[in-house]
């Protein structure tokens, strides 16, 4: 009884109460600009937020975004905390084993290395370097499987931490999505630069859903199809990424 009262008192103060208000809950990281981030007003913004809201409108469902840390974003989808993942997640065969992907809403885009602009490294044969990536990403998989033998691999829980460590010089190289790195490199006023070759890993970016939610997947795919057809998706890509890749209709 006491706990119940405590619970009631707390929820009155915290005032969430909207747990089941929306038809569809969308999980996102909220820390991966320009895909999904918190703007100065403290609200979620970004490519996926605008895309997701328009998708829901066209699919005729009410949606709500939920912030969830990246490393538990698939487990918490399976646990039912939300129904859709929109968090810059690339389609991979490994992820396909546990979740279902919609059609892609961002075309395949190469990953890139960023490092100090005066970094002298032989990219044919990387050795003795500290190389970082965000944990549980395709980039982390790639460096762990191909570069771990001769280099030190570091993984980070959040994209922000990886950038902070790169700028502080704690790692020599960071491998990440071009779409995420490009504005960082541009805005760092020369502190970091793109170095080495592009690395093509993973497919495009798509919504992740539970395998059992086939009806929701059909609805979302139909909405996405209509948004691609009338050029809305490309327009949003232009708005948030300022450059392609586009779907091009």
């Amino acid at each position: 009884m006491k706990k119940l009262l405590l619970g009631l008192a707390l929820s009155a103060v915290v005032g969430s109460g909207s747990a089941l208000a929306a038809d569809v809950r969308i999980g996102t990281e909220g820390a991966y600009a320009p895909w999904n981030y918190m703007d100065d007003s403290g609200k979620l913004a970004g490519y996926e937020i605008e895309l997701g809201n328009e998708l829901c409108k066209r699919a005729g469902v009410s949606c709500e975004f939920v912030v969830n840390e990246w490393d538990s974003i698939i487990p918490n989808l399976l646990a039912g905390n939300y129904d859709v993942i929109m968090a810059g997640m690339s389609v991979t065969d490994e992820r396909r084993e546990t979740i279902n992907f919609s059609a892609e809403y961002y075309p395949p885009d190469p990953s890139k290395y960023a490092g100090a602009s005066n970094l002298d490294a032989d990219f044919e044969n990387l050795k003795g370097l500290k190389i970082g990536a965000q944990g549980a990403t395709i980039q982390a998989d790639y460096i762990e499987s191909t570069l771990a033998a001769d280099n030190t691999i570091l993984t980070y829980e959040t994209p922000d931490q990886s950038i902070a460590d790169l700028v502080a010089g704690n790692i020599d190289l960071l491998l990440a999505d071009n779409s995420f790195l490009a504005p960082v490199v541009e805005g760092s006023s020369g502190a970091i630069a793109f170095v080495g070759p592009d690395v093509s890993i993973g497919g495009g970016v798509a919504m992740g859903m539970r395998k059992s939610d086939t009806e929701l997947a059909e609805k979302m795919n139909a909405a996405l199809e209509s948004m691609k057809a009338d050029g809305t998706v490309d327009k949003l890509i232009m708005e948030f990424f300022e450059a392609g890749p586009f779907f091009g209709n």
Binding site: A33, I163, V167
Partner: peptide, 16 residues
């Protein structure tokens, strides 16, 4: 504090 202090290079996101 983590979110606010994290380095930001995008004017769109807030103060650089």
């Amino acid at each position: 504090a983590d979110r606010l202090g994290a380095p930001n290079y995008l004017a769109r996101v807030g103060m650089v």
